[in-house]
């Protein structure tokens, strides 16, 4: 049977009028829009308001104890978020696919619900619903972790679930079991290795979300890294810009990893239409 191959190389678009000129103009203009703020940040962070070249902004940044403590806090919360996400998302997704495939649609819908409730409202609701145990809750910043897990679910669950769906889990499970493997062995030895890209993608998304999250942390008065940035932004603009730049560039690394890892699979699915015959 011949398979349908989408226009993986964009040839069809060129036939439809999206030529070289169009591409060049659009990409240059849009690219400029995205590049300029980053360049401006870099410039501002070394020039400051007073316009002489200096790395003082970066120096005072690294000297500031709050910088380190807030960064460390954010990292810890992020790690907790990642672990919690892994424990929650991976087993649930696989369980649903193998045992109750009919509920897959429901679970998918549920994973999108957090998108419908803005984080501000979540904080509002949490404070309102659990105000009696507020004192207990607000003592530890690690309460942020489960909140972040939930807010990042639309991204993390869907990324992992997509990977699970594109793998024929049931066939693999049946094959493994017919060869005598126990459930744990099947999970660890067969399923997870094949789901590595999706797993890493989901975890990195959750982690990146946790690192950059501002709303909940600030409203619950925890001094995470983004909260710190805003605070110093009130008084020391150059430093704030400097650290923002660093944060932006650091964010690029894990998220680029996600797309590169995810891209491996989609590349094998796309084939450009070759001229046959």
């Amino acid at each position: 049977m011949v398979t349908i191959t989408p226009g993986g190389d964009g040839l069809h678009l060129r036939q439809a009028g999206i030529g070289r000129a169009f591409r060049a103009i659009v990409l240059i203009i849009v690219g400029a829009f995205f590049l300029i703020p980053i360049l401006a940040s870099a410039r501002y962070s070394v020039l400051g308001v007073h316009n002489h070249l200096t790395l003082s902004a970066y120096r005072s940044l690294f000297a500031d104890p709050s910088f380190r403590s807030s960064l460390w806090l954010s990292l810890q919360v992020a790690i907790a978020t990642v672990i919690l996400t892994g424990l929650l998302v991976i087993p649930t997704s696989i369980w649903v696919t193998v045992r109750i495939p009919k509920l897959r649609g429901l679970l998918d819908a549920l994973s999108i619900v957090p998108l419908g409730v803005p984080s501000v409202v979540v904080v509002l609701g949490l404070l309102g619903a659990y105000h009696s145990i507020l004192n207990v809750i607000l003592t530890s910043p690690f309460i942020l972790a489960p909140i972040y897990v939930m807010l990042a679910l639309p991204y993390s669950y869907r990324t992992f679930d997509t990977a699970v769906r594109s793998l024929d889990v049931n066939t693999l499970v049946e094959a493994a079991q017919s060869l005598g493997a126990s459930w744990t062995r099947t999970l660890i030895g067969v399923l997870l290795p094949n789901l590595r890209a999706g797993m890493i993608g989901a975890l990195i998304l959750a982690g990146a979300y946790a690192l950059g999250e501002f709303v909940v942390a600030s409203l619950l008065s925890f001094n995470t890294f983004p909260v710190y940035i805003v605070q110093i932004g009130l008084t020391a603009a150059a430093e704030a810009v400097a650290v923002s730049l660093v944060a932006l560039l650091v964010a690029f690394v894990p998220l680029s990893l996600v797309t590169i890892l995810g891209g491996g699979r989609s590349k094998t699915k796309q084939r450009s239409i070759g001229v046959t015959g």
Partner: peptide, 9 residues
């Protein structure tokens, strides 16, 4: 947050 400051610059 980083975005806001980048645009301030």
């Amino acid at each position: 947050v980083p975005l806001a400051f980048a645009f301030i610059a």
